[in-house]
Design a protein around this nucleic acid. Structure first.
Lengths: 319, 319
DNA sequence: GCAGCAAATGATATCGATATCAAGATATCG
DNA sequence: CGATATCTTGATATCGATATCATTTGCTGC
């Protein structure tokens, strides 16, 4: 900037003002300086600006990425969320600092202006840990009873309820829920499902499975069959579980959807091309990401943003 | 730091040294200062340090994230890569700055110490554009003829060749390749496939399809059938294409793998659970991410790292 | 013709860290 | 005992931007 100042025969501060489009400087001067800056390939030193402004214009996104074949890493979900976040923040002139939980102690993270927490396993302890940083923070997921932080998530309860209503409309009386209600989001799906079923005098059976894999879905149905449990509908809390379930049902000679209705969750791209095309509950992750970003930005600006729940949509296909 | 200096009754610079574990300061003093820092929740101001050191300790990762249902956004691939990158960089004390191509003009990106380019569509023009930033840069993908930049990718050519050999070993004489050789990586797979086939006197047929979707795979096989083309093997350059192809073959009454062998690419988690379990070429993305990160770090340190090609593995299952 | 005001620019201090060089304290040695 | 080396600490300048207050210039209106 000092160099530019010399070139333009003005002071450093005028250059600074010109480059930030300040109305304090004559339009002519401003254009001249901006042209010079372009011409000489001037690049703002972000560190210097941030130091002076006491801001980093950076939002840290903390993703849970476990090494192995965990759901989080392989499902499209976090990436689409990241896409939405990245787009929105970038547009607002912020940068996205991506970290795993382990790396979150890095100095750069602590210097962030805000925090976004992703990952289904975001439990209270993790939230509290990051809360101590004292940064504006938004969490993706479901809202627990005593949560005070800002949460953005999709309406898991409504999703569960919609599935329950669908099953009822198909005359199903003995539905199964497969999943891990230990995760708050899954628990919400289960609650919505159970509550809505109860309205119609139906009591679903819970088969707890911790892994969100095809194998796990197969296993769940096999264990049901082995135990001789009667059922005519399955609500799996992930599409992979649902696919596994259908595979297992097929092997058992039970027809989907004639004998058993099956509905998955997430509506991953493959669901539509599954054979048979899988019915599923869709959440709009891109929108989720956008919203997460807007909320942090709001918090950073000192606004009073509340938590928000995004609608979901039951996509009925052939199962 | 000035406050800590007062508290410890030393100078700022001693505090600075103590906190960075400099051997220049007495162990006792150092411990005392570090204890004080912890106690008072001192946080390093990253901007200030970066300003002084003329470094940002940040590597920008530029991902192509197109809005719609593009392959990039939904496949597990970039996320796993990101996981590897993030892990490695974080361990080295660097931060990961995630951006889309559009956001890459942001000041923070230009301030990065290095650049990693991801996305199958990384063409020459994009590479050149970012090259102008003059930063250490590593690209994921395949190596073009005139490429001078550092490239990390998996051995697409070997992948294609392995598939060709497999087909030959199964006695297949009329193989089809489905995919878009416009992408350099895909082109390499095709080349390896074609060259290795030629060794055995076989000439594959190329069906060009630009989308990496199940629908596209179905469409490809249907068009083959409509044109009355004879074939007994399909090498699809993505698992989704392969799944679509198998679906379509099924509809046409052709058995897999009895009548037609099918092999996909990427070995996505679902491939193993597909019905029938899909044979596929696997690349180790986690390792790729790690390697990408190491290369940039090397470049940043001024080392002379070369390009590198990672091995792939043909996973033969039931197709 | 001069006070008063607006527009444009500048001088200086500052953000919070580290590099460089200087200097005091202590130890070692012939 | 003085000289030299070693250990430890400090003073000062600096990284590159912006906030604040000051100043200059040109113009308006009575």
């Amino acid at each position: 900037m000092a160099d530019l100042a010399q070139l333009a025969d003005v002071s450093k501060i005028t250059v600074s003002r010109a480059l930030s489009d300040s109305p304090l400087v004559n339009r002519e001067t401003r254009d001249r300086i901006q042209a010079l800056a372009r011409e000489h390939g001037y690049k703002l030193n972000v560190s210097a600006r941030n130091l002076r402004l006491r801001r980093s214009y950076t939002v840290a996104v903390i993703v849970e990425m476990k090494p192995s074949n965990d759901r989080t890493m392989f499902d499209p979900y976090p990436l689409v969320l990241l896409g939405g976040i990245s787009q929105e923040l970038t547009a607002a002139g912020y940068s996205v600092l991506l970290t795993t939980r382990q790396g979150a102690t890095a100095a750069a993270v602590q210097a962030a202006d805000g925090l976004i927490l992703l990952g289904q396993g975001v439990h209270q302890d993790a939230v509290r840990r990051f809360d101590k940083l004292g940064l504006p923070m938004v969490v993706w997921g479901a809202r627990g009873e005593h949560d005070e932080h800002t949460i953005v998530g999709s309406d898991n309860r409504a999703g569960g309820a919609a599935v329950a209503r669908h099953f009822v409309s198909k005359g199903r009386r003995n539905p199964i829920f497969i999943g891990n209600p230990g995760h708050l989001e899954i628990f919400e799906r289960l609650s919505g499902f159970v509550d809505e079923s109860a309205v119609h005098g139906i009591k679903p059976l819970l088969i707890r499975r911790d892994e969100f894999t095809v194998a796990s879905g197969i296993d769940a149905v096999e264990s049901l069959a082995a135990r001789g449990v009667a059922f005519d509908a399955i609500f799996a809390c992930s599409d992979l579980l649902a696919m596994g379930a259908i595979r297992a049902l097929d092997a058992l000679g039970r027809k989907v959807p004639k004998d058993v209705s099956v509905i998955g969750y997430d509506d991953m791209p493959l669901a539509a091309s599954f054979m048979p095309p899988l019915s599923s509950v869709r959440q709009d992750w891109q929108a989720g990401g956008t919203l997460l970003a807007r909320k942090v930005l709001g918090l950073i600006q000192g606004e009073d943003v509340g938590s928000e729940v995004l609608p979901v949509e039951l996509v009925v296909r052939n199962t």
